[in-house]
Design a protein around this nucleic acid. Structure first.
Lengths: 332, 332
DNA sequence: CTGTTAGCGCTTTCAT
DNA sequence: ATGAAAGCGCTAACAG
C-alpha cells in the first residue's frame, strides 16, 4: 500500500528520506537552497535519491511554514494599462530573475474585487504591485499588509510606498519645445479626467502653457484610445491651433490620421503634435510623434529594489520618483 | 499571548470558530462554497464572525488537502507572443470569471526553464496553458501531468490536447483573393523558420500558390518583427512582384512603410500586401493591411472548455481546431 | 551533524 | 448536525 500511494501522488520528501536512509529533516536540509549543516555523504545520498525519484518539492506546503511563496501579484485594470508592452515583458523577466513568479490580476471587469482577491491565492503573495486604480491607497493598505504593497498607479497618499514617473519634468520640456518654436495657441486632448493622475497631468500642461504664454484655446475630452483621438479630431470643436498636446500617444495617433494631410513626410506639419507615453509604436514611420517617456529600466529597477529590500521603502524613501523626458520626433 | 498572535498574523479559521463558539470543522463547512450540512444559526454566527475578523482563507493551506489551488499557469516566450493584446486580456478575464487566477510565466530568456518551473508555484497549478514553444509536447507532458496541459503553440504531437487555429483556411482564402485579382508573381516574407508552426504556414502558402499558378519569386527571411520587415523590404533582394505575403502583420507594416509611395491613400497599390494575425493595429488608418485572423472568442471558448471540462479533451477531441479567415483591407 | 517532535491553516473522515 | 482527531508536505526548533 505504500507503493500504491507513491504511484498515485508524486514523491514527497519523506520518500526521498526513506530511499536515502536519513530522516526527513536531513533530507529537507540537503535539499534546501541555503546551506544548512549536513554531512557530505548524506547530502549526496539525498540528492541522488531526489534525482532518482524525480522529487519536486511542494512549494505550497513549504510556504505554510516559511510564510513566503515567492509569488508577486501584479494588479492591473486591463492589460493595456501597461502603455508599453516592453515594460511588462521586462518587469516579469526581472521578477523571475530573482526567483519569484508573477500572478496576474485583471480587475477591470471584476465587480466584487475585494471578495475576488480575498478568495484567491493573490491574498497570500509576498508582495503586490498595484498598477490598477481600483482602490485608493488607504483601502489597498487595509486590504493587504501595507509593507507588501507598492502603489504604481499614482494613487499614493504619502503613507504607502510608491514609485511614480515624475511627469511634470517631461511636460515642461515638451511645452518649452513648443514655445521655442513659436507656438502661441494650443489645444489639449485629455483622457479620463476622473483619474487623479490625469488631473495632475492636465494641471502641469496648463501651468507650463501659462508660463510660456501659450494660449490654451480648447480642451477636448477623449479616453486615451486611438478611436477617441480620431473622434475628437473630427468633431466640430476641433480648433485651429499651433500645437496639439495629447495625454496619450494613442490619441495623438488618431489625431494624426485624421489630419494626415497636415503632416507631409519629413516636413514641418501644419501644427505641432505632442503625444504622451513614448510608445514603441511612435518609432514606426507612420506615427513619428513627439512624446514624453521615462527610463523603463530605472523604473523597473526601483520596483525590484522594493521587492528585494522593502525595508528601504518604509519611511523617507516611501515615495520614489523616476524622471520623465521629452522625446522629439518629426511632429514637433 | 493569544491576542498577541492574532495581532501579528491574520486571523485563521480557528479564530473564527472560537469567536462563533463552534468547532473548526463547523466553521470550515459554513465557510465552504459547497453546501455542507450546518445548522442555520451556527452558519450565521460563523459568517458573522468571519466578517468581523476580516477572515481570509489561506488558499495555500487549503490546497494542501484539497489538491487544487485554483491557479492556472500561462507560459509564453515573450509577452509579444500574444500577437494581439486583446486575446490575452480576454483570456485572463474569462479565467478569472470561473474563479481561478492566472500565474504568468515568461520563459523567453530563462535558461534552465525546467528547473525554474520546478522550483516555483507554477508546478502545482491546476492547469498549464502553453503558448511558448520552449519544449515539445512530449517533454511538456513529462514535466507536468499530461491531462493538465493544453498545448496552444501548435506543437501538438497527437497525444497532448491542443487547440490551434486552422491557418490553412485563411491562407487559402488570402491566396485565392490574390489570384482573383490577377496576381501572377509573389514574394513570401517569413518568420523564424525553425518553428514548426511557421513551417506549416509556409507550406500552406506554397501549396495554395501552386494551385493558383502564382509564381513564388522570392522567399525572404524575417523574424516577425516590424524592424525585420523593413530590413527585408530595403534589401537588394527585394523583388518586383504582384503580391507580397508576410507571415506576420508587423513585418507587413515594415514592408508598407518602406514602400509607402507604392500605396496611395485609398487606391490600389503597386503591389498587393497581405499580413497575418489581424492585429488591431491594422484597423489604424496608416496600416490598412489585409490579413488573416480567427475568432478570438471561439478560441478562448475552447480553452475555457478545457479548463472546466478537461475530460472532454482526453481522446478524440484532444485536437481542437478554430477556423481562420481572410480579412480584406485596402492593401489587397 | 543528526533525528525527533511540533506545528503551519485547512479539510475531512469518523464517531457521536 | 456536530466535534475530535488525523493528516496534507514541509520546515524549524530542540535535544542529542
Amino acid at each position: 500500500m505504500d507503493s500504491s500511494r507513491k504511484r498515485r501522488t508524486s514523491p514527497t520528501i519523506a520518500d526521498v528520506a526513506e530511499l536515502a536512509g536519513v530522516s526527513r529533516a536531513i533530507a529537507s536540509r540537503a535539499l534546501s537552497s541555503e546551506s544548512r549543516p549536513v554531512s557530505a555523504d548524506k547530502r549526496a545520498r539525498v540528492l541522488e535519491a531526489a534525482e532518482k525519484l524525480g522529487f519536486k518539492p511542494n512549494l505550497l506546503a513549504r510556504s505554510l511554514t516559511t510564510k513566503t511563496v515567492n509569488l508577486i501579484a501584479v494588479i492591473v485594470n486591463h492589460i493595456h494599462d501597461f502603455s508599453d508592452l516592453d515594460l511588462f515583458d521586462l518587469l516579469i523577466g526581472e521578477i523571475q530573475s530573482i526567483g519569484k513568479q508573477v500572478i496576474f490580476l485583471r480587475v477591470g471587469s471584476v465587480e466584487r474585487v475585494e471578495e475576488f482577491l480575498r478568495n484567491g491565492v493573490a491574498y497570500h503573495v509576498d508582495a503586490v504591485l498595484v498598477f490598477s486604480d481600483f482602490a485608493d491607497a488607504a483601502k489597498v493598505r487595509k486590504m493587504f499588509r501595507n509593507d507588501d504593497v507598492l502603489m504604481l498607479n499614482g494613487m499614493h497618499d504619502g503613507s504607502s510606498p510608491s514609485v511614480v514617473p515624475d511627469e511634470a519634468i517631461g511636460i515642461a520640456e515638451a511645452v518649452a519645445d513648443a514655445a521655442s518654436k513659436g507656438v502661441a495657441t494650443a489645444a489639449l486632448v485629455t483622457g479620463r479626467v476622473s483619474s487623479p493622475v490625469e488631473q495632475s497631468r492636465i494641471a502641469a500642461y496648463k501651468a507650463e502653457m501659462r508660463r510660456h504664454c501659450i494660449k490654451l484655446v480648447a480642451e477636448l475630452r477623449g479616453d486615451y484610445s486611438y478611436a477617441s483621438g480620431r473622434q475628437v479630431a473630427q468633431s466640430d470643436e476641433w480648433p485651429s491651433v499651433d500645437a496639439v498636446f495629447c495625454t496619450s500617444d494613442a490619441m495623438a495617433m488618431g489625431v494624426m490620421d485624421v489630419h494626415r494631410d497636415a503632416f507631409p513626410q519629413n516636413q514641418p506639419g501644419r501644427f505641432k503634435l505632442y503625444g504622451f507615453d513614448n510608445l514603441s509604436l511612435t518609432d514606426f514611420e507612420a506615427y513619428p510623434i513627439s512624446s514624453i517617456g521615462y527610463d523603463k529600466k530605472a523604473y523597473i529597477g526601483e520596483i525590484l529594489r522594493f521587492l528585494t529590500r522593502p525595508e528601504e521603502f518604509t519611511n523617507a524613501e516611501a515615495y520614489v520618483t523616476v524622471p520623465t523626458f521629452f522625446v522629439p520626433r518629426t511632429t514637433s
